[in-house]
Design a binder for these strands. Structure first.
Lengths: 341, 341
DNA sequence: CTGAAAGCGCTAACAT
DNA sequence: ATGTTAGCGCTTTCAG
């Protein structure tokens, strides 16, 4: 019934040749008579032969699979990275095993262990929001598992990283806000361990300093990276005596959450409070949210290329690739006619 | 270096036992002395032994992998279905190979062939918008490949399907519009071959008929399922002498596209034209779009369960599972105070 | 309770 | 150009 029952042995028996000859025909070796080759190919086709990859993989000690672990894949961001990855590795005959850690470092660990058991030849990882134990990754590196981090990376590790310059682009966002005349700019930051959180916060601080604005600690709050976390941030900021006139959120989900919360409280964006995000999302675009566009496909592609090179043992020196990005200014931060100053 | 170099042979040699004994210990067989077993387990641990799944799979003629092919996974919908799938099959020790056809039946075919080559034990598929050649699927069914369709199904095929009642829920959407007083309800339909297109169109027709409203062919247009396709639909509908007062779009992306296009032309939603979608999306929620919620996780879970049962040969009679859904009414269709009538 | 041996499907020397 | 043979790492009879 199932076609995968047919093996080269069957073809060999059927044609009265040896399995080696069949194998040669199937792998179009040159050391085979064209006629026998054609016969075998025809027969294989007729018998609906399908090679058993597992046998071949066992022999070659390969699996032709890589693993990808991301915090989630229900929003566009990681899926787009994954598409970039697939595009590159499929072309090289690799399959991709995709796991989502659901922002839990425990599940992340389990995923990675599952992927190891599945014998993936390499791993592309974007860590969960609470990942701060690096032992697992240290072990992987020590065991020479090809490994590339994307977006949410672990700079402490001597590994491959593919990122944008979060610090620089956060600076640009805040600089834009300052140039629009906003002076009391709050920052809703992400989870403390995350590389992107630290970098974007630093960019925010850089910009204030560069433009001689005071850093007000009470305008900075770590709320996390998810949309529903915006509420506590907005609640807090609006409770201040001196309310902010702009909010720079760690990412688009939080920024979108802010806009919704502000609207709920009848604050107008940007008239009363401007809002900017990061890692431009489709939903942010629809809401006219100022944000930083990340080249997601490109991130995936570059990460995949680096991983393949590592798998093939080309270059083994870990390296950080920093890709370009773009600040897109939209209605959520454009003040109506020289608002102030 | 690489831990996966250690085999049961190595452990056996190290301990002076046979590989059979090692195998027994590792598979906690009962026919082994507890002490030798413990020794072996300790040694395996010490040597960082990792079983070679491929060898085991080869022997057992399994792969422990299933394939999933969806049109895309950058919007929430299919990712959520996939999460449901993973949840079920991971628990059973299966891995999931995910492919996106990018709405192309050609790529869909390639994906499926790639998955076959990877020796997946079953397939969960949601077809591309232009899939109308069923030969590939007929072959799969004939070759007894376990197969479940979700959302975009092929009713012509005697296969497993997991869906909601698109016709019924489209009826409910249009019924709601009618009850709100809208009388000139247009339908922007999807690609003609798609099951969901046909069903939702039928539900639209059902509702008009049920409420004794005339079916106006010129208010129906097949535009496709992607957001950017809304433009041609809106252009057309607004060019009519008798413009519609409501639009029922085949899905949320098209509905969102409509709202954006209407706003661009200074039409107010819902005051000038109401808009309803289908398959509620996060972006739709933010835009206050009336839509039908689909139980995405559940769809994935049920599909996975059916597939596993097929793989294990439990029940082989193909079946269509119809899950419940929910109409969520939001601002995009609520007329301001008995608008008309 | 343990070991020897066969074999899953395939490739790659090594012969012929 | 083709066949023979030896495994890849593992499980599983079948003997002892």
């Amino acid at each position: 019934m199932t076609s995968s029952k047919v093996t080269i042995k069957d073809i060999a028996r059927e044609l009265g040749v040896s399995i080696a000859t069949v194998s040669r025909a199937l792998n179009n070796s040159h050391e085979i008579h064209p006629e026998t080759k054609q016969n075998i190919l025809d027969k294989a086709n007729e018998m609906r032969y399908k090679p058993n990859i597992q046998a071949r993989n066992l022999l070659k000690r390969r699996s032709n699979m890589i693993g990808v672990v991301v915090p989630e894949f229900v929003t566009f961001f990681f899926p787009e990275i994954i598409i970039g990855i697939q595009e590159v590795v499929n072309k090289e005959g690799f399959q991709v095993l995709i796991c989502q850690s659901n922002e839990s470092s425990t599940l992340e660990r389990k995923n990675i262990e599952m992927l190891e058991e599945s014998m993936v030849e390499g791993l592309i990882v974007s860590v969960a929001k609470d990942t701060n134990n690096l032992d697992l990754f240290r072990r992987l590196i020590q065991e020479r598992m090809p490994l590339v981090f994307v977006n949410r990376v672990l700079p402490e590790l001597n590994a491959n990283h593919v990122v944008i310059d979060d610090r620089k682009w956060a600076f640009k966002v805040v600089e834009h806000l300052i140039k629009c005349g906003y002076r009391n700019i709050a920052h809703l930051a992400g989870n403390e361990h995350l590389s992107v959180t630290k970098q974007r916060l630093q960019g925010y601080l850089d910009a204030l300093t560069a433009y001689n604005l005071p850093v007000k600690e009470h305008l900075i709050m770590h709320v996390g990276v998810q949309q529903d976390r915006a509420k506590v941030g907005v609640d807090y900021l609006l409770s201040l005596r001196e309310k902010p006139d702009a909010i720079f959120a760690v990412n688009d989900p939080v920024a979108v959450g802010c806009i919704l919360e502000l609207k709920k409280r009848s604050y107008k964006v940007p008239e009363d409070i401007a809002v900017a995000g990061f890692s431009e999302s489709p939903i942010g675009r629809v809401m006219e949210l100022t944000s930083v566009y990340q080249p997601t496909f490109e991130i995936g592609k570059i990460a995949a290329e680096k991983l393949l090179r590592q798998i093939k043992n080309y270059d083994l020196t870990p390296e950080t690739v920093t890709l370009d990005a773009k600040l897109n200014i939209r209605a959520s931060t454009i003040p109506p006619h020289k608002k102030r100053q």
